[in-house]
Simulated assay, not measured.
Amino acid sequence: MEHLSADLRASLRLFAFYLANGTIDVELLDEVDYRSTVFHSGSSLEQVFAIYGNVLRVDVDAMVLNDGDAQYRVAQWIRACCDPSYRVEPPFEAWETELHFEGRALPPPESVRDALGRARTTSSATRATTSPNYVATHPHPGRNRAAPFTDDALPLA
């Protein structure tokens, strides 16, 4: 069995880095400290990684095609959990939020279903334009990045 490509490993690593650092999609989540919500229970963190993995696409060479889109969908789910007035557009489709175990899709836990119910029935809020100073020193990969990650592009953790 092959290992994951360096590009895919970099995407996973940076996703975890931005998530733990509180900088997933800083425009959508500006001034929202979501970490206590996401890290409060394993179910929330599990759902975050499920959405990221379900939305993430790779090409035939295992190069990541839509890291920014996958992170944005996660940010929308997080925002809906932290801000009940936030409306997700477009609403999540079932395949985006499926949890998988041994190749089978499982229904999400009840606490996650409640958040998903809010996220699926809502429309987008106005995006904030200010970002923390962190972005200046650690650029976010951005939506639909075209170039693959290289080792010299990775921030030091």
Score class of each variant (00 low, 15 high):
2 E>K: 15
3 H>I: 10
4 L>Y: 01
4 L>I: 04
6 A>T: 13
6 A>H: 05
7 D>K: 00
9 R>S: 07
9 R>C: 06
10 A>N: 07
11 S>N: 11
12 L>C: 08
13 R>M: 00
14 L>I: 15
14 L>N: 11
16 A>T: 14
21 N>S: 14
21 N>P: 15
24 I>K: 09
28 L>A: 13
28 L>Q: 05
28 L>W: 02
29 L>T: 10
31 E>T: 08
31 E>K: 15
36 S>N: 13
36 S>T: 03
41 S>L: 01
44 S>H: 06
44 S>R: 06
45 L>D: 01
47 Q>T: 09
47 Q>P: 09
48 V>Y: 01
48 V>N: 05
48 V>L: 09
49 F>T: 12
50 A>W: 02
50 A>N: 10
51 I>P: 14
52 Y>F: 09
53 G>F: 01
54 N>G: 12
54 N>E: 04
55 V>P: 15
56 L>I: 03
59 D>N: 11
60 V>L: 15
61 D>G: 05
63 M>H: 08
63 M>P: 07
69 D>I: 04
72 Y>P: 00
74 V>Y: 00
74 V>H: 12
76 Q>V: 03
77 W>I: 06
78 I>R: 00
79 R>V: 11
79 R>C: 14
79 R>W: 01
80 A>R: 04
81 C>H: 08
81 C>Y: 04
82 C>Q: 07
84 P>Q: 06
84 P>K: 12
85 S>E: 01
86 Y>R: 09
87 R>W: 01
88 V>I: 02
88 V>R: 06
89 E>N: 04
90 P>L: 01
90 P>F: 02
92 F>I: 03
93 E>I: 12
95 W>A: 14
95 W>L: 12
95 W>N: 13
98 E>S: 13
101 F>H: 13
103 G>E: 00
104 R>C: 03
104 R>E: 03
105 A>M: 05
107 P>V: 09
107 P>C: 12
109 P>H: 04
110 E>H: 05
111 S>N: 05
111 S>G: 02
112 V>G: 10
114 D>Q: 14
117 G>I: 02
117 G>Y: 00
117 G>F: 02
118 R>Q: 07
119 A>M: 03
120 R>A: 14
120 R>S: 14
121 T>I: 07
122 T>C: 11
122 T>Y: 03
124 S>D: 14
127 R>I: 07
131 S>T: 14
131 S>A: 13
132 P>D: 02
133 N>F: 04
133 N>Y: 03
134 Y>W: 06
135 V>S: 13
137 T>D: 11
138 H>I: 08
139 P>S: 08
144 N>Q: 10
145 R>M: 05
146 A>S: 11
147 A>M: 06
149 F>W: 04
149 F>Q: 09
151 D>H: 13
151 D>S: 13
153 A>I: 03
153 A>D: 07
153 A>N: 09
154 L>I: 05
154 L>A: 04
155 P>H: 02
155 P>W: 00
156 L>N: 08
157 A>V: 10
